[in-house]
């Protein structure tokens, strides 16, 4: 009951107004980064943002819906990775509640912990749905590792970790940096603003 009430408190009108905008941030920045051919994704900034100021469940919802929208508008391969996006949101929100978004180094550490969550959920999906080799940079790294003699499973784990850890640390730092200097007046309207002020 207590949990249900706290979830209800997190999902206020401002949260519902923010989530669609955060989804758009995820997908638009992810797209921009891919156009620029940068070696990271940056496609979960919006999810982490919502998670930090609106709580883990709102973060989870943002992740799930982000991939639903990506699947509908961009390409169907977004759908199978929805659980990964959800985990990013949930873990980030949970870490924010534990105070991880109050200093630079803690935010960076949060990025590392989020990566652990990502690897645990993403690796099985990569293996089951894509046979380990996804049609992107992670798949390319996996292929190289497999070719160098590693087993498929350890290659997938290594490739997922490598490609995510920088990305998630940068994501967490960007979110921290933006929220740090933000006027309290605006931040105060979000249900978990105490996570950053």
């Amino acid at each position: 009951m207590k949990l249900l009430n706290s979830i209800k408190k997190d999902f206020n009108t401002v949260t519902f107004a923010l989530i669609p905008l955060a989804i758009v941030i995820n997908l638009a920045i992810g797209y921009l980064v891919s156009v620029l051919a940068l070696p990271i994704f940056l496609d979960s900034i919006g999810t982490v943002l919502v998670a930090v100021i609106c709580g883990p469940w709102a973060g989870l919802a943002t992740g799930l819906l982000s991939n639903a929208v990506g699947g509908i508008l961009l390409d169907p391969f977004f759908f199978p990775f929805a659980p990964v996006a959800a985990v990013i949101g949930f873990v980030a929100g949970w870490l924010a509640t534990a105070g991880f978004f109050r200093s630079w180094w803690k935010a960076a550490l949060a990025g590392v912990i989020i990566t652990v969550g990502v690897v645990i959920v993403a690796a099985p999906i990569r293996l089951i749905v894509f046979g380990g080799i996804t049609p992107n940079s992670v798949g390319a790294i996996t292929s190289l590792l497999v070719a160098s003699g590693q087993s498929l499973i350890s290659s997938v784990l290594t490739a997922t970790t490598l490609s995510n850890v920088v990305d998630k640390v940068v994501t967490a730092l960007v979110v921290f940096g933006i929220l740090k200097g933000f006027p309290r007046r605006t931040l105060g309207r979000f249900p978990r603003s105490e996570n950053v002020i």
């Binding site: 009108t13 401002v14 107004a17 923010l18 905008l21 919006g46 933006i178 933000f182 309207r189």
Partner: peptide, 12 residues
């Protein structure tokens, strides 16, 4: 991102 936070407030 900054403009998003402000816009969310007004949208709400």
């Amino acid at each position: 991102i900054s403009s998003t936070l402000v816009m969310a407030e007004e949208r709400a």
